[in-house]
Design a protein around this nucleic acid. Structure first.
Length: 308
DNA sequence: TTCCAGGGGTAGA
DNA sequence: TCTACCCATGGA
């Protein structure tokens, strides 16, 4: 979508290689994140964009599109070498370009309800540029309907996010420091309700150096250690921790929420009331791929999309 | 109006 | 480790 800028745009296009198989659209639609600010999906153009604040304090618009078997990242500004490196690093993280699903596909091929995963390159879950953003977003999915999550995240971005210089209607995801300096009453007024003190404690804890969310991105750390660390965060319990582990590329635990319970109950237990135990009984055999099996299971039995 | 949502924290057993 | 209870807000 063309926008008016005061000066002639100096577009820069970065093309990033992904480990095959890779499917841009599959990553974008892997879960609901593309519907949350500052992400914006343009279905007609098949592009995903977001405002990103760089370490240099510069706020830029990033536009992502499919490029062959990889990813193209377009910016309207001329980046310094350092900024360009940051954009490449963050983009690779957000789209999990390096992720390797070879072993998962080998097993999925033997299960008719998962055999579509290889062809559609299912597995990658769209991530935010920082764990801070993903932790906040998962926190905003707790005990609330999806439309409410969209509203809360949008309110946080609009209220605390840094605006794009040439288009202040679009903003980056707020820094922890900005939230940390706000008040609980302000957050409650945005509609966060009882989540307000959790978010405030998280933001202030990060600012004080009490929590190091970036350390969760370390692939060499054991999953259970990360899980303990996640659950220790304010407002993050078993469901949120398991969901965040999947975002981190660790699929040993299923984020059991009311949606998971109703889906699994409907398809495996004839609609009768179940709990976490029954969900794990269904997918337990998938071991380190439990969350992938649950998430990309073809519940309709059509060999098509299982997620919206 | 009532119920409950892509749950978490806490107290008490 | 498990259960009961409370939590704010908005949608259905």
């Amino acid at each position: 979508m063309p926008r008016d800028y005061n000066r002639a745009p100096e577009f820069m296009i970065l093309t990033l290689v992904a480990r095959p198989p890779f499917n841009f659209r599959s990553v974008v639609h892997s879960h609901g994140w593309y519907q949350l600010a500052p992400w914006e999906w343009d279905d007609a153009a098949q592009t995903l964009s977001r405002v990103e604040r760089l370490a240099s304090e510069r706020v830029v618009l990033l536009l992502f599109r499919a490029a062959g078997d990889g990813l193209a990242v377009e910016t309207q500004d001329r980046l310094t070498l350092r900024e360009r490196g940051e954009v490449e690093r963050k983009s690779a993280w957000m789209f999990a370009l390096e992720a390797d699903f070879t072993a998962f596909y080998a097993r999925a091929d033997t299960e008719p309800r998962l055999a579509h995963c290889r062809a559609k390159a299912y597995g990658r879950l769209l991530r935010s540029s920082t764990m801070w953003e993903d932790v906040v977003k998962v926190m905003m999915t707790t005990n609330i309907q999806w439309s409410g999550t969209q509203r809360l995240v949008s309110a946080l971005v609009q209220r605390f996010g840094e605006p794009l210089p040439n288009d202040p209607s679009r903003r980056a995801f707020p820094k922890p420091e900005t939230i940390a300096h706000s008040r609980e009453a302000t957050l409650r007024k945005l509609g966060l309700g009882y989540r307000a003190p959790y978010l405030l404690k998280l933001a202030r804890g990060i600012t004080a150096g009490e929590y190091d969310l970036a350390a969760l991105m370390d692939p060499s750390r054991p999953t259970d250690e990360l899980r303990r660390e996640l659950i220790a965060l304010p407002g993050i319990g078993p469901y949120a921790a398991n969901t965040l582990l999947a975002i981190l590329g660790r699929y040993d635990y299923i984020g059991v929420d009311t949606e998971a319970i109703s889906t699994v109950s409907r398809h495996f237990y004839d609609g009768r009331p179940i709990g976490e135990k029954e969900i794990n009984a269904v997918f337990g055999a998938w071991g380190e791929y439990k969350a992938l099996a649950y998430w990309f299971w073809d519940y309709a039995g059509m060999g098509g999309d299982s997620n919206g």
